[in-house]
Nucleic acid binder design. Structure first.
Length: 250
DNA sequence: ATGTCATCTTAGAGATGA
């Protein structure tokens, strides 16, 4: 079984990249983030034509998440403890429970968005109380957290910034401590499996990226391979994130 | 280290967020 997560930075703008990618990569389940698309305007028919059922959350301009599944999609939810923003979608997809997340960015450690980010991560952890660490389960998406110093191109450049603070990392670690593994993908280039590169300043070309798109999986998913699809970050009108593709043996 | 991109407002360039 192949699963993937991709922050597409607008599904409307990215459909010409997403649909061919789905056909070539043939994932069974895909978590999408930053669809920037109202739930009612989601391109259900376009993905249905490729064999996917979908659940989408979105209020239009910002945020927006979705799950695509070829293996069935039951008990969908888009609610996280009453948080109003469209940042979580979850469903049972055949044998696997899947959650797609778009964790708040935080903006800066001084911004009100920063404690909001930490609270949101804590709510995500609390939500796991309804599940078992022994069951096949993944939480994947854009966490807006680089779990280690090695997950940014130069940690010195992040002094005073979000994404690398101990509190944010503790928020992700709490998910791991519950019983999830941070699946380490093979890098597409260099030593670092970065998943995001700023559009500006030739960051992608210089491989000055960050590993902030994560796949957190329970042991029973039995991961056999994982890679960052760097090709999807190249070419015409790419997202600023690359997909992470994970093969599991369920 | 901010050189780009996407969206919305509301009809053209500016604001916002990442």
């Amino acid at each position: 079984m192949r699963i993937a997560t991709w922050n597409v930075n607008s599904i409307g703008a990215r459909l010409p990249r997403l649909l061919p990618w789905l056909e070539e990569t043939a994932p069974d389940i895909v978590a999408l983030q930053e669809t920037k698309c109202a739930a009612g305007a989601f391109p259900y028919l376009a993905v249905q034509a490729l064999g996917y059922e979908a659940v989408a959350a979105g209020d239009g301009r910002w945020n927006g998440v979705a799950i695509l599944s070829k293996l069935g999609l039951t008990d969908p939810t888009t609610d996280l403890a009453g948080y109003p923003e469209a940042r979580l979608a979850a469903a049972q997809c055949g044998p696997l429970h899947v959650t797609s997340v778009y964790v708040p960015n935080g903006r800066s450690p001084e911004d009100a968005q920063y404690p909001y980010k930490l609270e949101w991560l804590a709510a995500l952890r609390a939500r796991l109380d309804g599940f078992e660490p022994t069951q096949p389960l993944v939480i994947m998406g854009d966490f807006n957290v680089a779990p280690t110093d090695d997950d940014v191109w130069d940690v010195r450049a992040f002094s005073g910034s979000t994404h690398v603070t101990p509190a944010e990392r503790a928020g992700v670690q709490a998910l791991v401590d519950w019983g999830l593994s941070d699946v380490r993908a093979r890098p597409g280039k260099g030593d670092h499996p970065f998943t995001y590169w700023d559009y500006r300043a030739g960051m992608f070309h210089k491989d000055l990226g960050m590993r902030i798109d994560l796949v957190l999986a329970t042991a029973s998913t039995r991961v056999t391979d994982a890679y960052v699809d760097r090709e999807a970050r190249k070419g015409k009108l790419p997202s600023d994130h690359a997909p992470v593709v994970v093969d599991i043996d369920l």
